[in-house]
Simulated scan of single mutants.
Amino acid sequence: MRFKTDLKNIRTFSKLAAALNSLEKIAWIRLDDDTVRFTVIPEVGSQVWASLSADLIFDNYQLQSNEPANTINLELPLAPLQRALRSAINSHNANLRLTKKDGAPMLSMVIHTMTKDSGGPNPAAPHSRSAADDDDNDPFNTPSPFPTEPLELQMRREREKIITQDIPVRVLHPDTVETIMQPKVREPDVHIQLPPLLQLKAISDRFTKLAMTAASTSSSSHNNIVTKDPKLELSANMHGSLRLRLRTDTLDITSVWDGLENPELDPSQLAMPLEEHPSTVFREAGRDKWATVRVDGKDWSRVLSVGRLEGRVIACFSDEHALILYVYVPHSSGGVGEMEDVVTYYVSSFSS
């Protein structure tokens, strides 16, 4: 079994690791000849299924195993990975390889950076001269209105600094991996491109904070220290509108976005005629036909942390059942026709 690669797009990789780490501390990573898959399945909360082209984050990618497509399955802690990637962001070169230390498997990240050292005066530099040393008849020997600056030059030498970060991993047997199944959901009732996630997160966090404050005040007045996690209601229609709502015994506040895009579906990718698709039914029902899910406010905030990847996000609503987020990560500038990879979030809906 062999895995060795150089890192590229380290900043994107670091942002992904941070987003995953906000949901769970452990991830399963599946490497094969062409693809890198990250899976995060917390005991409670939203699940993540990220499928990335190997060339998005890796270069000089070398992989070898006895499994089909040279597949290697690893379980790794996300916090050490995030710390290592943060250290590598400003490096000029970083590589990652699977190795063993004291018999235990490790992902070893070697980071090469350049530092500058300050040296003493340059002995080859000329020394400054005082006015007394000059010939009195020197026509250029006139007082200057500017302060005299020393000509001694400080030598600055670049020195390479090598940092090694070891991330403990566990190699998973293929039989174990077969039990990790992606959730199956029905065809979505509404699909819509979300507004910028950092904007949506700010308002969602505000609603959650208001709900917690109201719940805390209510529980204190009733001598009750148990406070339920606040639930937010997300709704969307097939006419470009998204609604975020908080309803409690004492609050009912709503924020609405209009003018959003409902992307067109590709009929060749559907298991049914487009005119029979649930989203077509919702579109024809008009603006008042909403698909709704209810999410835990704190978990939803962690999900929205993926906004740091700065890709477009398509939300697929299965009414009263689940919300699927498809986060498209561009390979470079994200221009028209730019190649993209996808990170998928599965968010279950709570009952009303």
Rank of each mutant, 00 (worst) to 15 (best):
K4A: 14
S46L: 13
E187Y: 07
E320N: 10
S279L: 10
K101L: 11
Q47T: 10
A322R: 04
K201R: 15
T5H: 03
I314E: 10
L200F: 08
R97Y: 07
D138Q: 01
V347G: 01
H92T: 03
R287N: 05
T176K: 14
Q182N: 05
S333D: 12
L246N: 01
E187R: 04
T213V: 14
T213K: 14
A236C: 07
R294D: 00
E43P: 01
I167L: 08
Q269D: 07
G119A: 13
T292C: 10
F58N: 03
V313C: 12
P183A: 13
H112F: 14
E233L: 13
I167G: 02
L31F: 15
L325C: 02
S216M: 10
V36E: 00
V226Y: 01
E67V: 00
E67Q: 13
F146Q: 05
L200P: 00
R156F: 09
R2H: 08
Y326H: 12
L244S: 04
G307E: 07
K228Y: 11
Q193N: 05
L198A: 12
E340L: 09
R83T: 11
T71E: 03
Q154D: 07
S14R: 13
D166I: 11
D55A: 12
K231Y: 06
R287V: 09
L78G: 01
I203N: 00
M181L: 09
W28N: 06
D296A: 14
H321A: 13
Y346P: 00
M106N: 02
T12F: 03
G297P: 01
A315Q: 02
K161T: 12
V336D: 04
A50T: 03
E43Q: 08
F140T: 10
D133L: 12
N70K: 10
N122R: 13
G337Y: 07
T115K: 12
S144G: 08
D341P: 02
G259W: 11
L98S: 05
S220A: 15
Q154A: 14
G335N: 07
L56Y: 02
Q269E: 10
R243S: 09
Q62R: 12
V347S: 03
L197W: 04
I180M: 13
S22M: 10
S87V: 02
S218G: 01
G240W: 06
H173G: 02
V329T: 08
R312Q: 06
G240I: 09
V347P: 00
T12C: 07
I192A: 07
E320F: 04
K298W: 08
A104N: 04
D175S: 15
K201E: 05
Q193A: 07
H239N: 08
M155N: 02
R243C: 09
K25E: 08
N137P: 00
N66D: 10
A125Y: 02
G307L: 11
L81P: 01
M109R: 04
G45F: 11
A17K: 07
T164Y: 02
S65F: 08
L96S: 04
E67A: 14
H127Y: 09
L274T: 04
R243W: 03
K116M: 14
Y326V: 06
R312S: 07
R308I: 15
E75Q: 15
G334I: 11
M106I: 15
S219G: 12
P168Q: 12
W290H: 05
G45C: 08
A285K: 05
